[in-house]
């Protein structure tokens, strides 16, 4: 009984094995990179493993509502970044991006000082995944639907 494997099927099997090995290797690499490849630390990570004062790090999170306060010099701004678990006070002296508002995401380059305040050199606004027109701002989803119905009709 001859059970010769067709060359086509042999190629298919070889290629599938090679692809499986490649995907496995990639998943291992990504698993090893999971801490290193992040662009910033969130406050909970800083609370769990505090970086040395003066070490350059990037902090990301949400600007706490009601926390933005301008200092007397008129350029230095103080606010609190939180992630729902921990809070980090931040001071920044420079030009703020237009999207920097309370309740929005922010990424700051800088370092922790000795008393636990984050001193930022650069501030980047992080846009969230929501895209909403101006007229619908502050409405609930049901109101938005209604408004849209009125506009369409």
């Amino acid at each position: 009984m001859s059970t010769r494997i067709k060359p086509k099927h042999q190629r298919l099997a070889l290629l599938l094995i090679a692809l499986a090995a490649l995907i496995g290797a990639t998943l291992l690499a990504i698993y090893a990179l999971r801490d290193q490849a992040s662009y910033f630390y969130v406050p909970a990570e800083i609370a769990a493993d505090p970086p040395a004062p003066g070490q350059a790090i990037r902090l990301g999170g949400m600007v706490e509502n009601g926390s933005i306060a301008m200092q007397a010099d008129g350029v230095t701004v103080e606010f609190v970044v939180h992630d729902g678990q921990a809070r980090v006070p931040v001071t920044f002296n420079g030009i703020r991006p237009a999207l920097f508002v309370e309740g929005s995401g922010v990424v700051a380059d800088g370092r922790m000082d000795a008393d636990g305040t984050f001193v930022a050199d650069r501030l980047l606004a992080k846009h969230d995944e929501n895209y909403t027109p101006r007229e619908l701002e502050g409405m609930t989803t049901a109101q938005m639907r209604e408004e849209l119905q009125d506009t369409v009709e």
Partner: peptide, 23 residues
């Protein structure tokens, strides 16, 4: 999704869209 990034997470997923219908 895997890493913290400055780029926002996906707006359009199998669960729906975070982009308003006008956009």
């Amino acid at each position: 999704v895997w890493w913290n990034s400055l780029h926002q997470p996906p707006s359009i997923t199998t669960g729906g869209s975070a982009i308003d219908p006008v956009f």
